[in-house]
Design a protein around this nucleic acid. Sequence first.
RNA 1: GGUUCCGUAGCUCAGCUGGAUAGAGCAACAGCCUUCUAAGCUGUGGGUCGCAGGUUCGAAUCCUGCCGGAAUCACCA
Length: 596
Amino acid sequence: MRIENIITGAVKRFFIEKELPLSDTSSVQLQKTRREFKGDITLVVFPFVRLMKKSPDEAAEDLGLYLSGLPEIKSYNVIKGFLNLEIEHTYWTGFVAEAAANDKYGVKAQQGKRETVLVEFSSPNTNKPLHLGHIRNNLLGYSISLILEANGMNVKKVNLVNDRGIHICKTMLAWQKWGENKSPADTGVKGDHFVGDMYVRFEKAYRNEVDELVKGGMSEDEARVEAPLIKEAREMLRKWEADDPATTELWRRMNGWVYQGFDITYRRLGVSFDKIYYESETYHTGKTIVEEGLKRSVLKKKEDGSVWADLTGRGLDEKLLLRSDGTSVYITQDLGTAVLRQKDYNAGKMYYVVGNEQDYHFKVLSLILDELGYDWADSLEHISYGMVELPSGKMKSREGKVVDADNLIDEMIETAGKLSDELGKLDDLTEGERKDIVDTIAMGALKYFILKVDPKKNMIFNPEESIDFNGNTGPFIQYTHARICSLLKKSAQRGILPGNYDFSGITLSDKEKRVAALLHEFPPVVQEAGRSCSPALIANLVYDLSKEYNQFYHDHQVIREENMSLRDFRLLLTALTGDVIRKGMGLLGIMVPEKM
RNA sequence: GGUUCCGUAGCUCAGCUGGAUAGAGCAACAGCCUUCUAAGCUGUGGGUCGCAGGUUCGAAUCCUGCCGGAAUCACCA
């Protein structure tokens, strides 16, 4: 049993024996003992002082005396109403031996029937390549999926590609006009970038037209609607919705280019999906649902023909679901997608990893599904994450103020390679090995940089200062792992294999205990990360563990330790640390090298 | 204007459902490799936790009001 549960149980027994009613278990507060005091775990006694009718110090003394009767408690001391408990070394050694032998440590054993949950992430538009914002989305979505899986759920990762709409028509039109009938293969440009360039081309030309019209005396708003290019694009959208063969053919072709490009970026990011939904396929369902809702009078039609959901009774506004011309809007497609997914998977939960700029959208989406009578409407959960900003503010694709995903990855790999060469770390490896390790380090740096931040918060990325490889970084943790692998390899080469698990006679140093205590935290942190959908919690723990282990490594001998029991314990501690680093980083979607 | 989120060291971030003297990293400076990988370790300096009240044994954390920033409230997605 975990030490927290042992202590909590004992505290409860204490109050039962004293016939003092303890209101609820939450009043038993345990925390890590601060470094400056002696002990491992601290019980906060303030919540009990009124109950016990004693001063904080007296109450702590009574509890300390009682708890020291436990075989796991070695000693206690009281400081200002805090009861510091020192745990017996055998608890830590026993824990390390047990955890090291359990290859599922920290990962919930999958029990018979697992709840199916859906995680939607990525959700790109097919008119531009992925940028840093998408990277955060993809990394979060993928990591959260792995974390939920580790918490015993049957996770299905789904992507929803926005492959239709006016923006796609803009790229098609630009290609017809200026694409010279060339394909990405002809130009050597990656497909998604090729199409993205067309989009930029269109926006520029469109802007010029609008400016001209404004110069001619037209208002800005009017000019935006009247510009010939946008009219042409709208006409193309109309043709697309009418299934015009030439238009859909071009549409299919250009989306194909984009997907080829996306696939490369996804592969480099190491993310994958179980199923990909396309809005071009789900928006029909959305329309059907809305029409049914209209028939049942849950929704309203206005004189101009537009269809609305009235949410004023729920504290919100009215929401448009179908335009007056009968075409669907963004939320209509999301309604359809949700219904289709529920049919496909019958999931207990549908997570949406989408930026916090869409908080309102998801509130509305869930309410409308509820209005329409779907009993699973409250199983939608928006995992709302903060924006990635540049030092100058928000990224703006229109002004070219974006950090392109492919460029960033390239730069990370270049930097990692340069650094590795400078340090001469990979000199005696083959070119293939070197490349693998450099990639691993580069992606580790990038992924960790993004995932260590609380998802809910906006974060700032400064492209001028490249991502670090020292300190609180992915490579630091990877390096710790590589060192551990090297050490374990050496011990195996020398035929040192821990066989003697009798650790009753050894005394642990503070460093050893702290490493053990952090390893001990791994399972509850994985659980909490799943509950709160926050990979950052795991990132922080793995960093703390690496830092603590490096101090241990600096201060102690492992292989050369002469006391065999102690040496074996340190080897186990080392092996378990390596295991937890690998698993923890694995849950972030980050690989760890065996040497670097 | 309404709603929501955010404000912690020069910079980037931790700080769980309130607990002890608020922690890391980067940057700066000073040290540590004949010993298991120095992408490491050690030390120094750096804070009115936006401001003001309130709740209580105790507040960076909870409540209220201000100040500052962001998002959103589209027949855009």
